[in-house]
Simulated assay, not measured.
Amino acid sequence: MGFAEEHQRWLEYHKKRRTGERLDRLDRGHRHGEQMFVERVWWPIFGKLDDLHPEYEVADWRGRPYFVDFVWKPGQVKFAIEIKGYGPHVQNTDRTRYRQELNRETYLQIAGYRVIAVPYDDLESAPEQTISLLKALLTPCLLKTSSEGSGQFSRIERDILQMASRMNGMIRPVDVVKQMGINRRTAIKHLTTLGDKGKFKPVLTPESNRICRYELVQSMIDSEIW
């Protein structure tokens, strides 16, 4: 599944779980800058949108609702990600609003979030710089998570993942059968299990809606897991 389809599916998933102001804020808040971040930075790093929550509601230090552009919660750690344009955040003439914004960021850190500010201009002109910085920041947390859960992959599952990587991310049950010398039922069982673990997405044939192959979900920590 490509980015456009996955992005739409991801948005619909979150919209279905919201009502009232939380739904309205998602409609109003997830705009050009936020969409650029997801497409030009997040997707190239992860190849998926799991655990990323758009327009995430938290309470500020006064108990009032506040919506963070993105919150990422892959496990025990949680990050608050804000897309910041030059005008609204630097040339803001409303000094009270500016102070409140800074206080919110401090409070988010008190509440256990690591706060990331992403310049809007970099998303347009230099997304690779943001990608590099985020990788350096997030990789230690991802490696900790993967080392704790790396045992979830059996030897044969790791072999299948490596095989899919060599085949440009697409693999069929028949490929597993030929390469690994196992029967088709066992191959499908392992591919399905890896799909349940978030490493494969089934690709359906348009005519019959049957699974014809599996698409590898790339991750920047694949080398550590495999």
Rank of each mutant, 00 (worst) to 15 (best):
I83F: 05
K84V: 06
K84A: 07
Y86D: 11
H89A: 08
N92K: 12
D94Y: 13
D94G: 09
T96E: 15
T96H: 15
Q100P: 07
Q100R: 12
Q100I: 10
E101L: 05
Y107A: 00
L108G: 00
L108S: 01
I110V: 07
A111Q: 14
G112V: 00
Y113T: 04
R114V: 10
R114H: 10
R114I: 09
P119Y: 08
Y120V: 03
D121G: 09
L123S: 03
L123Y: 05
E124Y: 15
S125W: 15
S125F: 14
E128G: 06
Q129P: 02
T130H: 03
I131N: 05
S132A: 13
A136C: 09
L138Q: 01
L138M: 14
L142I: 08
L143M: 11
K144V: 08
T145Q: 14
E148W: 15
S150Q: 13
S150D: 13
F153N: 09
R155W: 11
E157F: 06
L161E: 02
Q162R: 12
M163S: 13
A164H: 00
S165Q: 06
R166S: 11
M167V: 00
G169Y: 04
R172S: 04
V174N: 14
D175F: 00
D175K: 01
V176K: 00
K178Y: 14
G181Q: 10
I182K: 06
N183Q: 07
R185I: 11
R185S: 13
A187P: 03
A187G: 03
A187K: 01
A187N: 05
K189Y: 12
L191K: 01
T192K: 06
D196H: 14
D196A: 11
D196K: 15
G198L: 05
K199N: 08
F200G: 00
P202V: 03
V203T: 08
P206C: 04
E207N: 12
S208F: 11
C212V: 11
C212T: 13
R213I: 02
E215Y: 05
